[in-house]
């Protein structure tokens, strides 16, 4: 190994960096101890390398860089969060829509039975949810006239309902069939302007398994809602009342 080769090897020598002190380097280092010219060169070389290393490591870092990196990270995180939240929300909505669509396509369709009709009609009013009336009036004649104009005629009101005050009516649609909804106030309702009796009339031909008798069949739906159902002529009837069986019987 000549002096030039020693210099080339030691040019890459960095004391303390693991894995770089191979046999060749050790040999070159040994030679610097024996050769005065090499020793002098190596001393100067090390001083220069130390100075260069120090100068590279003294490159001034701009003030505020650390804070800027941290704050940008926070800004990115904050920006990403709503984006991610929106994506999750969109995915949830999409999944829900797919589920609803699949359910409506695949679920066994309830038939147009009277039970389904009864559940559908009574269910909402039992929960206190009934639609805005097409006609609001206490005049039964006006109600009947309105319903007749919509093709709903030929029905017979139970005698008992004469004791109640009409409040209005509405034409509903159930499985492409027209349903007349007549609302009454029993006079015992805590809210005198609001109905607590609901009569639904539908063509008997529109439903299957309609009640086979003209005698009302009374069924408590819950603690505060009861229904009565019967058929008469070509109509099927469902009367719901916000009260118990005794309350409802008064209006049949």
């Amino acid at each position: 190994m000549n002096n030039r080769e020693v210099k080339e090897i030691l040019l890459l020598y960095r004391p303390g960096i693991s894995g770089e002190e191979d046999q060749e380097t050790a040999q070159a280092l040994e030679l610097t101890k024996r050769d005065a010219e090499l020793a002098s060169w190596f001393e100067e070389h090390c001083a220069l390398q130390d100075a260069l290393r120090a100068n590279f490591r003294q490159i001034a870092v701009p003030q505020g860089l650390w804070e800027q990196i941290i704050s940008e990270r926070k800004a990115h995180t904050q920006l990403r969060f709503p984006r991610r939240a929106l994506l999750v929300a969109a995915a949830v909505v999409l999944l829900a829509l797919i589920s609803v669509g699949a359910y409506s396509l695949l679920r066994p369709r309830p038939g147009n039975t009277f039970v389904n009709f009864s559940n559908r009609m009574a269910g909402s009013v039992a929960r206190g949810q009934y639609p805005q009336m097409d006609k609001e009036t206490n005049d039964l004649g006006a109600i009947q006239q309105f319903l007749a104009s919509k093709g709903q005629s030929g029905y017979q009101l139970p005698k008992g309902l004469e004791k109640a005050t009409p409040t209005g009516c509405k034409i509903l649609e159930w499985r492409s069939n027209s349903v007349a909804m007549l609302c009454f106030n029993s006079g015992t309702n805590a809210k005198p302007d609001e109905p607590d009796l609901f009569l639904f009339v539908v063509a008997r031909s529109a439903i299957r398994q309609a009640p086979s008798t003209h005698l009302p069949k009374i069924e408590p739906r819950n603690r505060r809602f009861t229904t009565a159902s019967w058929t008469s002529g070509d109509k099927a009837y469902l009367l719901g009342g916000l009260g118990d069986e005794r309350f409802l019987r008064k209006f049949l």
Binding site: F56, I59, V61, P62, L65, H76, T77
Partner: peptide
């Protein structure tokens, strides 16, 4: 961040570019 900036500055010789590179590096890390 300091040594990365120093490396970036050695490459670019421009403080703004070095800042950008350093920030971009940590953004990629994030």
């Amino acid at each position: 961040y300091r040594s990365l900036y120093q490396f970036a500055f050695s490459l670019t010789q421009a403080e703004a570019d070095a800042c950008d590179l350093t920030q971009q590096t940590f953004y990629v890390w994030a």
